[in-house]
């Protein structure tokens, strides 16, 4: 019947999203001149990836996101989900298959937590028993206790709890694609950190494809499989994995945007296991690190260690190498390292 049956129709795994030269102009009423919110945007998001759109306010991130579920229609270009042009799909059917989370969360104040989460399952006509089971599953999935939360109203929740329920609601029918517009923007840094970690965990387990909007470069680097850095006027300055972004910013603008501390940020996205470690010596002393420790934390510990060297062990505690200041420096200075 409708294209939506084939689009996003399969049960598991993430969708592929492709922007093909997408532009959006808003008519300016003042002088009648149209202004471009998004200009000639092309990018591909592979299944199971988190694509983060990052950039200063007003550079077209939200507009780009909303064109995927047709809350905004592009002026030109195409957006394909699993190869199907979204403009050929009934918008209502399309939206029911795409999870959508906004910063203000938008939980319905007149509905209980269970009713909020059940919104899309109800719209698509799931049987009551299935909805009930799914609601409890989802509340637990986002780390809350179903028995004590399902009958509460949003006003009885803290900011962080509301964000969790917002994510649970968007995941209700296991959408292969989630659109998230600054979903953790309204909570304090400690809660945000926890929500980010839990979300990463959840996303990896479910293999969802996520388009994630933020203005926070640290959040982009932490969550993104790939990061699209937007410039004012709705163009992409660089689209690369976070490590690449930090190591080789494509333009001055990107370099400035990622910050002068980009070497330190880069360390935070690397694990000790990623480094070229020195061989284990008999005198392998100093602090002991798990191979999964991020390099930034290891560096912080080394700065306080007496000999500026530490032993790296694998998950079973067997030493696999020694990490020194030099090891770390050569990792962030790839050119220098290759000359040696």
């Amino acid at each position: 019947m409708t294209r939506s049956d084939e689009l996003l129709g399969r049960a598991k795994g993430g969708a592929t999203v492709e922007f093909r030269q997408v532009s959006k102009h808003y008519a300016r009423s003042a002088n009648g001149q149209p202004i471009a919110a998004v200009r000639d945007l092309s990018l591909v998001v592979q299944p199971g990836e988190i694509c983060v759109l990052v950039g200063p306010s007003g550079c077209g991130k939200t507009t780009s996101l909303k064109m995927v579920n047709r809350l905004i229609e592009p002026t030109s270009g195409q957006i394909l989900i699993d190869g199907v042009d979204v403009m050929t799909v009934d918008p209502v059917a399309l939206r029911r298959r795409i999870g959508y989370v906004i910063q203000q969360v938008g939980l319905f104040p007149h509905r209980t937590i269970a009713e909020n989460i059940a919104t899309v399952p109800e719209l698509v006509g799931w049987p009551k028993a299935k909805i009930r089971a799914r609601v409890d599953e989802l509340i637990a999935l986002v780390g809350l206790d179903p028995a004590s939360y399902r009958d509460r109203y949003p006003s009885q929740l803290s900011g962080g709890e509301r964000q969790r329920i917002g994510v649970a609601r968007a995941m209700a029918i296991e959408p292969p694609l989630m659109l998230m517009d600054e979903p953790f923007g309204a909570v304090d840094p400690i809660v945000r950190e926890r929500l980010q970690n839990e979300f990463l965990d959840l996303q990896r387990r479910l293999g969802l494809t996520v388009l994630f909007v933020t203005h926070d470069i640290d959040e982009a680097i932490k969550l993104g499989t790939r990061v699209a850095v937007f410039e004012q006027g709705g163009t992409i300055a660089q689209y690369s994995p976070p490590a690449e972004l930090l190591m080789r910013p494509a333009t001055d603008y990107v370099a400035r945007f990622v910050g002068s501390d980009r070497a330190l940020k880069r360390l935070a996205v690397m694990r000790l296991a990623d480094l070229r470690l020195s061989p284990v010596s008999s005198a392998g002393e100093g602090p002991v690190f798990s191979a999964e420790t991020n390099v930034r934390d290891a560096l912080a510990a080394l700065l306080l260690a007496p000999r500026a060297a530490g032993t790296v062990v694998d998950s079973s505690g067997v030493p696999i190498g020694v990490v020194t200041m030099e090891t770390i420096a050569s990792a962030v200075q790839p050119v220098a390292a290759s000359l040696e």
Binding site: L71, Q104, F108
Partner: peptide, 10 residues
């Protein structure tokens, strides 16, 4: 925001 969330959910 509520209206947008509602519409965005289909």
């Amino acid at each position: 925001d509520l209206v947008e969330a509602a519409r965005g959910m289909g």
